[in-house]
Design a protein around this nucleic acid. Structure first.
Lengths: 136, 136
DNA sequence: AATAACTTTGCAACTTGGTTGCATAAACTT
DNA sequence: AAGTTTATGCAACCAAGTTGCAAAGTTATT
């Protein structure tokens, strides 16, 4: 757990019990997770606390949020030294069968040429379909 | 208005008064519009009716919906013969200054190579930044 | 033209995700 | 140990999206 403390500290957050639990939950996960998913993983935990914990994690770039079009925002751990710059960004994949949202960490977002005068700041790219596990 | 009737009829919808009004509102617009935006354009109109009208339009591929990450789904007219297939899809642009969501109809979504076993069905790609109008 | 059958509209009410305010508890400072 | 800051928990709220049901409007059938 010392390990996780360091993760929090290196991102300028105090390693409280709550934060460790949440970070742990995120580490266990190989898919992105919503606030209510997270809530279900704890017997007794206040939604607001979890909400604020996620917000704090996000602000400090320990996790990033994904809008996968399901209506609930998902969260996933950032890579070690991620600064959430455009070139840090990867494609996300939503499986319409198992409803899981994956970070395709090795699939960078392809570049787009925008019309004149449009300036890019960030991109959200979500591919939907069936994942490797659900392929029949 | 006969014009619009045809649009509705050709997409297999009965041209009711409500639908014509909504279609008209959409035609006036050069940006995508949310349900509550639409609501504001009518003095007296039930949210649910507008909601169902949009749903009907979407089902019949007269409009498409865009999840621009703002938390409210936007809608915009499809091109004439759009079938909303992956190759019909275009990039959307959300301007962080004026908060408008544009269809970049001439900017097709670039192709991505997914990890083995992942099969693409559709893509949502939203670029965020500043639009041509907001460029200083 | 009258009745039946179906479709669309409007109202009420609800669900869910996200959020704020405030009081308590915990941690850090001196 | 007292005071200050930070984190947590509860209640309550807001907005977006949605469903059920009854009334109004349309279309089809005789």
């Amino acid at each position: 757990m010392k390990n996780n403390d360091d993760k929090l500290i290196s991102r300028n957050m105090k390693p409280t019990a709550m934060r460790e639990l949440v970070l742990n939950a995120l580490l266990e996960q190989n898919v992105a997770i919503s606030l209510s998913d997270l809530e279900k993983k704890f017997d007794k935990a206040d939604k607001v606390t979890l909400y604020r914990t996620l917000k704090t994690f996000e602000e400090n770039k320990l996790i990033h949020s994904i809008d996968d079009g399901t209506g609930s925002v998902k969260y996933a751990l950032c890579a070690e030294n991620c600064q959430c710059n455009p070139h840090d960004l990867h494609v996300h994949f939503f499986c319409i069968k198992c409803k899981h949202t994956y970070c395709l960490n090795d699939t960078p977002i392809p570049s787009v040429t925008l019309p004149l005068g449009f300036e890019i700041k960030t991109i959200n790219m979500v591919v939907k379909g069936t994942c490797a596990n659900c392929k029949e």
